[in-house]
Design a protein around this nucleic acid. Structure first.
Lengths: 403, 403
DNA sequence: ATTTATTTTCTCGACTGTCGAGAAAAAAGC
DNA sequence: GCTTTTTTCTCGACAGTCGAGAAAATAAAT
């Protein structure tokens, strides 16, 4: 269904365009903005004046360069325009970060998650208390927080606020929008962790490659995550995280901690590899937690040519390869980026992955997808958070207009 | 990447809005257009005047109703504004249809496809000749054809003009845009057949259901097709056809006619069912063609309780169910519509389908998807063709503006 | 036959937006 | 101080939408 357009929509769109250019490049002069956006100089004047008036951007006179003519004045997002809170929930800790509108990290602390402390209700209280603490530590009023961006592994509902299933809370649903309730005017965003990796990688790829079409990020670890970023036909970036880890691989993969049989994760997650390496019956309830040192031992064995460890990694690779091939069948071909703790075993997985991929027509037609291992997942996740949160805030600002 | 907007874009968008409302409802008065689109009356006047001037729509004075006031004048697309050609390539015949801009069928004929007549080059000539014949029969000039919409089973490239793989031509690539070349000003569109079914069903669903999010159409037959229609975040309908039939199911499914092992089709396509029912080794080269009567016999056997026919259909059902579960894992939950010749055996497939679906976390969380069998696939395909071709033509018209 | 009521369409002026061209500003070189 | 150069700002033109009210066209009432 098409929707009505109007001159206001035009203004919104072009304001957003200016703001996002400023965000990407940090700061730009009048003429640079015109170049970047393709808008006429006169239009830039109007839009920057408006954004300046509303306190969103500020001009920083800076004539350092020895050029002739009138010195440029640079526009940049006003860092004190507002703040965003980033929360990363991982299996053992929760990390709370505060950043300003310019994307600069102001404060950060972590809280250990006590494994047993009762379900979502208890967590809700801890969560809200931690946010308050973050505010107090930096003496920031609650209403100056424009977005709270939360990430977890697991399955996020389409509305982007409800956690449907996660390794941490199981299928106990957790609604972050309701957690904060009416007291916070901040917009609440919940994202799958690997989605954020895809977001960060896609943002970088878009910078340098004009023909960017899409990419997939796969996170290997205790659980398996997938994030997809694709450029839609309108040119807009669409990022999402399907339920890849618990997509059906083959029932031979055994019992998964989600309760189903045969998930990809049951073969390629750490506990799946562990189970296969030690020849534990595949319907055994999976280990809650596998220390990395344990995995390292199995990997060492595999690298020394031991049979079962090698087999376990190969089976894991095949599960991944099959899953990727299915994913590529259902989307277009795209490059794959692999991240997460599991990448340290990628040498052991790779053969299986390629074997698993080679089985499908898609790969035979298009060739093997390009697979790249990228490190520093934590950094990517945080970048993705900021990326997503700040651009959401930007679009809120431009949508608000002059009320 | 956002893109610059302007007042012209606004006009384009709103013109397209008016045109699409007219297309959906057939004909509307000035006030009805205003209601439908939400645009102001004054705007309607300008836009309709413009479209009328360019010969796209015409007013049909009609004051049949006994109302008081000034009688309404109805606007409708001018049927002689242009023409579209629809070509349906199936395994044994090719159907050529001519329709006018109002979507009314003007002429149609079929040509048998001789199975052996040399590859794509020969077909290209036959194809172009048939189009010319269609024009001559109705005495229409070539330049009055605004779109040629072609459909086939198989895998279509993202640009919408190249056939990458098809049951008919194998992996010999067929570029329809180049086939027609410079002589035709018509826009050439190639679509997967099941994509068109999804398009037609989605168009209907959007009419009646405001909350429409998406649907999947699955076509069962000699080959297995999938079409997906989803409403994007901008509200625009996105329709596409992933390579579902040749997505990896399980290597136990045996050799597929695409040359890979373990495709869904190798288990759930007619030849797969046949092979399983007759206990033919699963690496046998699949039968080129399975007469429907043969399938009917196997089905009759299965309904009478014979072991292997029943097993064959159940395995086919599981392959479908697993495939659907994987598809739902990678997209959101959505209703499934099943069509094609194979639906006559759906009673035999259903149990397997449900079994195959039940294995995944996604289904356990969201419940079984709604599965509906719909008949008259040919009609749906043709509707989808018109739908797609005419709205493409509409957007060409509004994009052209007044050059 | 004329007037009135009713409904629909058309038109006018106001408002908002973008654009191109040229004026104005601000610094460096002479 | 004057010129040159570069950047920013401003002005008028143009395109689009909107609301209100005028105009048109018919049925009903007088």
């Amino acid at each position: 269904m098409l929707t009505k357009s109007s001159t206001e929509v035009v203004r919104q769109q072009n304001s957003a365009l200016v703001l996002s250019a400023l965000r990407r490049k940090g700061s730009l002069s009048h003429t640079e903005i015109a170049e970047q956006t393709g808008l006429a100089s006169a239009t830039i004047s109007v839009i920057t004046a408006e954004l300046e008036r509303s306190g969103t951007i500020a001009r920083t006179e800076q004539h350092v360069q020895g050029g002739r003519g009138r010195p440029r004045v640079l526009f940049a997002p006003r860092r004190d325009c507002g703040y965003v809170i980033v929360v990363r929930i991982s299996s053992d800790t929760v990390q709370y970060s505060l950043a300003d509108y310019g994307g600069v990290l102001l404060d950060r602390f972590e809280e250990a998650r006590s494994q047993d402390a009762g379900g979502t209700a208890a967590f809700g209280e801890v969560f809200v208390a931690a946010l308050e603490r973050l505010l107090q530590r930096s003496r920031i009023e609650r209403d100056r927080v424009l977005a709270v961006s939360v990430s977890s592994k697991g399955l996020v509902a389409g509305d982007g606020a409800r956690l449907l299933w996660s390794p941490v809370f199981g299928s106990e649903e957790l609604d972050f929008a309701r957690l904060l309730g009416e007291d916070w005017r901040a917009r609440v965003m919940l994202s799958n962790e690997t989605l954020l990796v895809a977001q960060a990688l896609a943002a970088k790829a878009e910078e340098k490659d004009d023909g960017f079409r899409g990419l997939a990020a796969i996170s290997l670890g205790h659980s398996i995550g997938l994030g997809l970023a694709r450029r839609g036909r309108s040119g807009e970036l669409d990022v999402f995280a399907p339920n890849f880890g618990h997509m059906l691989h083959a029932s031979s993969a055994g019992l998964c901690r989600c309760g189903s049989y045969g998930c990809i994760e049951a073969a390629a997650g750490f506990y799946g590899i562990l189970r296969a390496a030690f020849e534990v019956p595949s319907d055994t309830i999976p280990a809650k937690f596998v220390p990395l040192s344990e995995m390292d031992k199995i990997a060492a064995g595999a690298r020394q040519g031991q049979r079962m460890p090698g087999y376990a990694f190969r089976q894991a690779g095949i599960a991944l390869g099959n899953g990727i091939s299915r994913m590529l069948s259902l989307y277009e071909p795209m490059p794959i980026y692999v991240t997460g703790q599991g990448t340290r075993y990628f040498d052991l997985l790779q053969k299986g992955v390629e074997e698993g991929l080679a089985q499908s027509l898609q790969v035979r037609l298009e060739g093997l997808p390009e697979i790249t291992v990228v490190g520093d997942e934590q950094r990517l996740v945080f970048d993705g958070h900021l990326n997503r949160a700040l651009s959401a805030v930007d679009s809120d600002i431009t949508a608000a207009g002059h009320p």
